[in-house]
Nucleic acid binder design. Structure first.
Length: 776
DNA sequence: CAGTGAGCGAGCTTCCGCTTGACTT
């Protein structure tokens, strides 16, 4: 048994460190936190100064047993959890749970996994910082109080199983508010004018010079008047201005920037990025992927330096140390970088290779020279008016880091006409120019963009909300609770006007473009909006975007010993709990009800609201004489906030009765899987893009019913007289057994035709094993 | 796996942050 036991948080880290330390040291890991607040009974004794009730997490029992054994056998235990609030708490919990003797326990920290850093840490042990631990306890207790007191209010006032929390509720708020900005956005249009000038070249060649007017016109009339002037105008170069500029590389990756760039450049989702990065980390290819520090170790910078010189030469080198800007960063690790920077690529899956390449390039570029550019602006005078056409060109004088890596932006300028980057043809001041095309195009102002997973992470990080380890889970949680959906939505056609001056003639055309197409964007659901409005009404403090930042200031006071943690929680709890009581008492049940208007046919009121099974439209009201209102579910793509009276009235036209077939009613309606015909308690889907549920007739419905019967007959392999509920059928994935509305897989290699009843019953009994649920 | 929308009541849901597998599909 080893003399020394070192405990870190992650097993991959343990492996690396063990190599540096040699055989006197056994390095093992705690796998993060080992203890947490009890989940039943709140886990906090409110009456007793907020005393936390900690228990060893069920999935950590085994690890704790093992750690106890190893700690007992060691002469010295070195606790090397991360040097931040959570890491310090882990160290403290380890000391408590493993009952470590202070005389043989040492707390050490390092910010980078290099041999030097670790040896230095071993030489400089320190006691556990109790103040920092207390700051973590305050953070933990506050989150539990908020989550476990507000969520039950939602169960009562909105819907069971919902949740609220310091982080998730604000994340949903951002998405809801953005959606409302988009709903309320009024698109304005104006006219943007561009021209193509012809510049004669040396040997009779003509090159084009694309330029844009320095003014936009509000109306079609103004644009037309301008083009009229251009008809008779002369054009000449008024001015040529050259301006040097430079670009600087972006800082090395941290969790949030890696997620953003992997989303923009590789199309990865946030959780996908983390899963791939985890594999690279475990294979020893990159440093730790959950970090908020842009810091690179001296060793890393040196390796980058020789690599850059070898690949590109001295003039491309400029080593830099970046400063973290994010609010509340705790900087326990290095930036995300290749472990061995001289390795340009790695083995592994295609995704691993691509993510590694991205990380490698970003790291290398961060230590390279600025790019030097020159921007040229040419102004073109119009003889009969004061407006100017302008052409801009940009040339790269020295590429610097751009040779390796260029950071992407979220929104490529959709209005850009692409003349920004080009080299301009040689022209001189006062030179006369001819034009062969001037176009005034109607352009619309852009709605604010919806959030992607990655841009939401960016926003949260800017506000100091959430941590590198939680960005991906937050996005999953708000979707699991049904507050947010990530989806694609098709755009709509929009007409725009274009005026063209060519060959001295002005023509006017109406063109069509598609606008508002969305891909993998975050949309709030109706429930998300209703919950959000409820929380803002009754818990405005928690829902404040700055709530986290405010409590972080208080946690910092605790961390430097300026304040007792339970005093801080006490200050928070009193008014907060009052809020909870008040909300329970005075709030109405939140249903998101909207009165859309009156049905002209029946003169009954039309409402939309959230019902037991989701959003619905209601025609009429519950009245004394027992008349029941009509209900209809909203269809996918319809929302409480935006549905119109006309759209709602459409919903009541279904289900439609078509008539009778074989003495049974035939009806048509729209269900979760689209329009269907119902007959004899059987369902038949209408054919997509062929049948319309509002107009389809009885003959066509019978045709579909018969077609379905024919298909079912073909699928039937075998039945047994003794057990009519049991059938052997041919399905999409081969033969299977259907019994009492449940399906059972037939083991591979069995001939379905030869199965007897007893065989089938055996398959059913042995059938789907009870799922090992994750619920306790 | 498609229809529902009244009401009661038992028993359950829920937070954020730190870490990996162990489960199916």
């Amino acid at each position: 048994m080893s003399e020394n036991l070192v405990i870190v948080e992650s097993p991959a880290k343990a492996k690396t460190i063990e190599r540096f330390l040699g055989s006197d040291y056994l390095v093992t890991s705690s796998m993060g936190h080992i203890r947490d607040l009890e989940k039943k009974d709140f886990g906090i004794d409110i009456e007793n100064n907020f005393q936390p009730k900690y228990i060893v997490s069920p999935d950590k029992k085994k690890i704790v047993t093992e750690l106890k054994k190893q700690a007992k056998a060691a002469r010295t235990v070195w606790i090397a959890s991360d040097e931040d609030r959570e890491g310090e708490a882990i160290a403290w919990h380890l000391q408590q749970v493993l009952k470590l003797d202070p005389a043989k326990t040492k707390r050490i920290v390092f910010h980078e996994i290099t041999k030097d850093a670790i040896l230095k840490a071993i030489e400089n042990p320190r006691p556990i910082n109790v103040n920092l631990v207390n700051a973590q306890q305050a953070r933990r207790v506050l989150d539990r109080i908020v989550g476990f007191e507000v969520s039950p209010v939602l169960w009562k006032k909105v819907k069971p199983s919902l949740s609220a929390g310091r982080v998730q509720s604000v994340a949903v708020r951002l998405i809801v508010e953005r959606e409302r900005e988009i709903i309320n956005f009024n698109s304005q249009s104006n006219y943007r004018v561009s021209a193509i000038f012809l510049v004669p070249g040396e040997n009779g060649n003509v090159t084009e010079l694309k330029a844009e007017l320095n003014k936009r016109f509000e109306t079609k009339g103004e644009a037309q008047a301008f083009l009229e002037k251009c008809r008779t105008a002369e054009f000449s170069i008024a001015d040529i201005v050259k301006k040097p500029s430079k670009r600087t590389p972006a800082a090395p990756f941290i969790t949030s920037t890696l997620q953003q760039e992997a989303s923009r450049k590789l199309g990865f989702s946030v959780s996908q990025t983390m899963a791939v990065a985890q594999r690279l980390y475990e294979a020893g290819k990159i440093t730790y992927m959950r970090t908020d520090s842009v810091n690179l170790s001296g060793l890393a910078i040196n390796t980058a330096k020789s690599k850059i010189i070898a690949l590109h030469g001295e003039e491309y080198l400029k080593t830099r140390q970046y400063k973290t800007k994010a609010k509340g960063a705790q900087e326990a690790h290095e930036a995300i970088r290749p472990t061995y920077i001289d390795q340009e690529e790695v083995d592994g899956s295609a995704q691993e290779k691509r993510l590694y390449e991205l990380i490698w390039k970003r790291t290398i570029a961060s230590q390279m020279s600025d790019a030097k550019l020159e921007r040229t602006t040419v102004s073109i005078k119009i003889s009969n008016t004061t407006e100017l056409f302008q052409a801009t060109g940009e040339i790269i004088k020295f590429d610097g880091f751009l040779r390796v890596y260029m950071e992407s932006t979220d929104h490529e300028d959709e209005n850009s006409n692409g003349n920004g980057k080009a080299l301009l043809p040689p022209v001189e001041v006062n030179q006369q120019l001819r034009t062969n095309l001037i176009e005034a195009t109607e352009r619309f102002t852009q709605k604010p963009p919806r959030y992607t997973e990655a841009s939401l992470v960016k926003k949260l990080e800017e506000q100091g909300i959430g941590r590198p380890s939680t960005y991906a889970p937050i996005i999953t949680t708000v979707q699991n609770r049904g507050y947010v959906v990530k989806e694609d939505r098709p755009g709509v056609d929009r007409d725009f006007t274009q005026l063209t001056l060519t060959d001295n003639e002005i023509s006017v055309k109406t063109k069509t473009e598609v606008t508002g197409t969305e891909k993998s964007k975050l949309f709030p659901t109706d429930v998300g909006m209703v919950v959000n409005d409820f929380l803002i009404k009754y818990f405005d403090k928690i829902m404040d975007l700055n709530f986290t930042a405010k409590v972080e200031v208080e946690f910092d006071e605790i961390a430097i010993g300026g304040r007792a943690w339970n005093e801080m929680i006490g200050q928070f709890y009193k008014p907060f709990h009052q809020n909870v009581e008040n909300a329970l008492e005075v709030s109405e049940r939140a249903k998101g009800e909207r009165h859309l208007g009156t049905d002209p046919a029946t003169e009954l009121p039309v409402y939309v609201k959230i019902g037991r099974y989701g959003p619905l439209a209601q025609l009429g009201e519950v009245t004394e004489d027992g008349e029941k209102p009509k209900f209809a579910s909203l269809r996918s793509g319809q929302h409480l906030e935006t549905i119109t009276l006309e759209e709602a009235l459409e919903l009541f036209k279904l289900p439609r009765e078509l008539g009778e077939y074989e003495n049974k009613k035939v009806t048509v309606a729209i269900g979760r899987f689209g329009p269907y015909v119902r007959h004899d308690s059987k369902f038949v889907s209408l054919e997509k893009n062929v049948d319309d549920p509002y107009t389809v007739g009885l003959d066509r419905a019978i045709e579909l019913i018969e077609a379905k019967r024919e298909k079912d007959r073909k699928a039937l392999i075998k039945t047994f007289d003794q057990e009519p509920e049991l059938r052997i059928l041919e399905g999409r994935w081969g033969p299977y057994i259907s019994y009492k509305k449940k399906n059972y897989k037939i083991p591979k290699g069995t001939e379905a035709e030869k199965l007897e009843l007893a065989d089938c019953m055996k398959i059913i009994e042995e059938g789907p094993k009870p799922k090992k649920g994750r619920k306790k």
